[in-house]
Design a protein around this nucleic acid. Structure first.
Lengths: 238, 238
DNA sequence: CGGTGTCTTGATTCTCATCAATTACTGTGG
DNA sequence: CCACAGTAATTGATGAGAATCAAGACACCG
């Protein structure tokens, strides 16, 4: 695990909260106290229940954020990439992490200790404000997800998950999603079982709404695809 | 609708974020710009999709926070009381409310306009910090709920909901929950149907885990009751 | 080439939502 | 004070959807 300390101001993740405040914070030493590291695929960055030791920003790569329930079944809550946060409670007075996260590919992370982060937040009200907005928006997304889980059918949940992946990770020229997940991961994200995901994907392929090429999944016609979801859900993006 | 302007510092809701900062903010005029009003039972304080116009604190009373899905079915996200917030996106640059809220009894509310609130938050980093912590905790609760919805059975969800009500609203000497909800509200909160709630309650009564007296529901033995929920869920409170 | 893990499909079981019908409760106006 | 209407609560019957179980296909890696 290689560590270094690149500049936040020069970072390419323009949507990262810290990048936005890099200028204001330049005179302080907070940002210099971070610890940037590269971890390989499949590493547990954070384990649910372990004592908190700060917060990570994803500089490059992808990680899933999840927690573990009955008989080891995972619930994936979101995927984090470019400038997004892992271990969102790492700043607070809570004792333990509530969620786990695991890298899905080689990932570069920037770690900030709890104390450092708290100092930063207390010293800059606009930073604290942006963090607040971030959490408020995450809360919104999460509450939307609660509602979807309560009301959508498996088919809708799978479609919704694919739309989410498409929005968040995009697709190549041929329309194939840039993020390739195992059926199990899709199931754990959509809140169903592997078998149901497979059945749904098969059905969607037959209906010519999806195409596959090896492991890659492609949405044939986004608009038509999105229409599969009940109008009541349609405008609720998460 | 009667309006007035009582002091935040003298307010009895000691857990209210603004009460905590009332002293610091005393020299500013922010808190004086609020608008305290009394609304009767069953009023829609906020309607999903309407343009935002600020944020409400519950001074006294109870409101439910929910949104509306397929064929009018509600998903209740939480209940707000003493010092808690309604319309949590009222401060942001978002255009519309994402959730509705409705009073369950006569309720006194303190309203803050978007501009006023933003000024307050930008001027006090410790206030912004506390708001951030509030949202982070709400996020946590919500993510726990996502997982529960994905993995719990109806019976577990009903039990979990009653435990939540008990934690949040308490019970009288005889063990009856202080908050009485219709079966429909319980269902909308638990993420199931009215009939399923009724069936579950009937079963729990037969098993002597619950008792009823008129509309009141009482948990006979909290520990025994909580054990009904799988150990994996047991320590996840929301 | 065996072995492990992912993917796929079918059959079965079971939970839950829906529908329908009945009873209890609440409040309102005559 | 009672009749009535409207709402809430309850129970049973039924069907659809989804989880589970089982077994085989496929791909990838040492």
């Amino acid at each position: 695990m290689h560590t270094s300390n690149p500049s936040c101001e020069a970072c390419l993740n323009t949507n990262c909260i810290l990048h936005k405040h890099a200028r204001d914070l330049a005179m302080t030493s907070f940002l210099e106290k971070k610890n940037t590291m590269k971890v390989r695929k499949g590493q547990n960055v954070i384990i649910e229940g372990s004592p908190i030791h700060g917060l990570y920003f994803v500089k490059e790569g992808i990680a899933k954020v999840y927690n573990t329930g009955i008989n080891g079944r995972e619930q994936i809550l979101r995927f984090a990439l470019n400038g997004e946060v892992l271990g969102q409670r790492g700043f607070s007075t809570q004792q333990y992490y509530a969620v786990s996260s695991l890298t899905l590919e080689e990932t570069t992370l920037c770690h900030f200790s709890t104390e450092n982060l708290q100092m930063m937040l207390k010293s800059s009200s606009s930073l604290a404000y942006d963090f607040m907005v971030f959490y408020a928006e995450e809360l919104n997304r999460s509450e939307t997800k609660v509602r979807k889980f309560a009301q959508m059918t498996v088919r809708e949940k799978v479609i919704d998950s694919l739309l989410y992946i498409n929005r968040k990770f995009g697709h190549d020229e041929k329309g194939f999603l840039k993020l390739t997940l195992s059926r199990r991961n899709i199931a754990d994200f959509a809140g169903t079982t592997e078998e149901q995901v497979i059945r749904t994907l098969s059905a969607l392929k037959k209906e010519k709404l999806l195409k596959c090429e090896g492991k890659k999944i492609g949405i044939v016609d986004i608009d038509k695809f999105a229409l599969e979801i009940d109008e009541h859900h349609y405008f609720l993006q998460s």
